[in-house]
Simulated assay, not measured.
Amino acid sequence: MRKVIFEEFGGPEKLLLKDAPDLVPGEDQLLVAVEAAGVNYLDITQRSGASAVHVIKPPFVLGLEGVGRILAIGSGAENAKDGFKVGMRVAWIDAPSSYASQVLVPACRAIVVPDDLEAHQGLLFQALTAHYLVHEYRAIQPGDRVLVHAASGGLGQLLVQWFKHLGAFVVGTVSSEEKAETVRSVGADAVVIYGNTYDFKDQVLDLTQGKGVNLAIDGIGEKTLLNTISVLSRGGTAVAIGAASGPIPQITPTILTPKGLRLAGGAVFSWVADPVELKARAAQAIEGIEAGWLKLDAATSYPLDQASKAHEDIESRRSKGKIYLIP
């Protein structure tokens, strides 16, 4: 097998492709031939040493997400109610060391996916993230106003589509006109181009006739969160899910008081810790993909030996849609 490993924290150049012995499944594990390994921003922070939540120690093989076919089944896993068989196609979002041609997936975390889905459609990390963000912080009603930052990314596109499917008025923010076109193509009602200044406040308020938004999803952090809170309507909620522009600033609770606002944190792993919940959320996401209203058309693949290039493109904001590696 082959795997991408880094032996010390640093830039994308630290990612190295190496040969390794084939894996053997242990009890309640599946050995899977990786068809595609998802690249997520969490991988970037882990590689650089900046992740304060999912702390790792080099040497380490990155990647938590993938899709592939079962090569072998460990003892006990054959009795899982999913009915796993060699050759069956499965996906996962939390199996370490997925930047590889083989990976070991706990049977309870493996999600059976249809054969007719394209490789990038079977990468469910962002779809499951979108699922909890759409459903856990507000019961979206037709006409609700929602702000989605970084809306041209893989997660952003899914959020725009899902909120629109529920009838919301959706404003997306992006850094360029090219990315704005992508967001318009997936159904956003309005797009704000904030460029390198992250200036969006006045435009969002204008687009909502001064009312602000009921719900805002902010994965940018330092450069945006305070203004995100400022464009919330009375009783609105901002969900901080990342820090792409820098550390999330400290928030004084009193700024939430006048309009009865809410500030929440979000992490997909909190909402899929229970295997039953994981697979229920995945089933709903796959249903949307197969029905056609949840589209994952924009995706870019890289060979496994170009993992460093994939990381460079994400960090330089050149990427659009889902990024994944092909072993």
Rank of each mutant, 00 (worst) to 15 (best):
R138K: 09
A139C: 12
A139G: 12
I140C: 12
Q141D: 14
Q141F: 11
P142E: 10
G143V: 02
R145S: 12
V146S: 00
V148P: 08
V148H: 06
V148E: 09
H149K: 12
H149D: 11
H149P: 09
A150I: 04
A151I: 00
A151P: 02
A151Y: 00
S152G: 03
G153W: 04
G154Q: 12
G154Y: 10
L155Q: 06
L155G: 04
L155F: 04
L155R: 05
L155Y: 04
G156S: 04
Q157G: 15
Q157F: 13
L158K: 06
L158T: 03
L159Y: 00
L159W: 00
V160M: 01
V160G: 00
Q161D: 01
F163Y: 13
K164L: 09
K164A: 11
K164P: 13
K164R: 14
K164I: 12
H165C: 10
H165K: 14
H165V: 05
L166V: 01
L166W: 02
L166E: 02
A168L: 02
A168G: 04
F169I: 01
F169V: 01
V170F: 05
V170E: 06
V171M: 11
V171L: 13
G172E: 07
G172V: 02
G172A: 04
G172M: 05
V174I: 10
S175Q: 07
S176L: 11
E177F: 12
K179P: 01
K179I: 01
K179L: 01
A180G: 11
A180R: 12
A180Y: 14
T182H: 08
R184Q: 08
V186W: 13
V186I: 07
G187H: 09
G187V: 11
G187C: 06
G187F: 08
G187P: 08
A188G: 06
A188N: 03
A188V: 11
A188M: 05
A188K: 06
A190Q: 05
A190Y: 06
A190P: 06
V191C: 03
V191A: 02
G195M: 03
N196V: 09
N196E: 11
T197R: 11
T197I: 08
D199P: 07
D199W: 12
D199K: 12
F200V: 05
F200Q: 04
K201Y: 03
D202A: 12
D202R: 08
Q203T: 13
V204R: 11
L205D: 05
L207F: 10
L207Q: 15
T208H: 02
T208G: 05
Q209Y: 13
G210Q: 08
G210I: 14
V213M: 00
V213W: 04
N214D: 14
A216M: 13
I217S: 13
I217T: 10
D218P: 02
I220Y: 07
K223N: 15
K223T: 04
K223D: 13
T224H: 15
L225G: 00
L225T: 02
L226P: 03
L226Q: 14
N227I: 06
N227C: 07
T228N: 01
I229R: 06
S230Y: 08
S230H: 07
L232H: 14
